[in-house]
């Protein structure tokens, strides 16, 4: 199953990834990182199809995508 990893310390919570994701995998919780940004987390990782659109749009390169070969 494809998987995304969001590095909390690089994320600034702009939510471009959540807007772009076709399966609405990404959202936020009340957690914040060391700079006080409410970072994005994969709320519904089971829906991820590994399209990499979130990683392409992420301005801060916080998202990495994994897929089975």
């Amino acid at each position: 199953m494809p998987k995304i990893e969001i590095e909390p310390e690089f994320c600034k919570g702009c939510m471009y990834c959540a807007e772009t994701c076709p399966k609405k995998v990404i959202g936020t919780t009340s957690a914040v990182n060391s700079k006080g940004y409410q970072y994005a987390v994969p709320l519904h990782p089971e829906n991820c199809i590994g399209c990499t659109l979130c990683a392409v749009i992420c301005p801060d390169a916080a998202i990495e995508v994994y897929k089975e070969e």
Binding site: F10, E64, V65, K67
Partner: peptide
């Protein structure tokens, strides 16, 4: 699992300004 989208190697591993 194979990484199909990675952070570019030339970027520092810290938050930018």
């Amino acid at each position: 699992m194979k990484k199909i989208y990675a952070r570019p190697k030339g970027l520092y591993r810290n938050i930018n300004g």
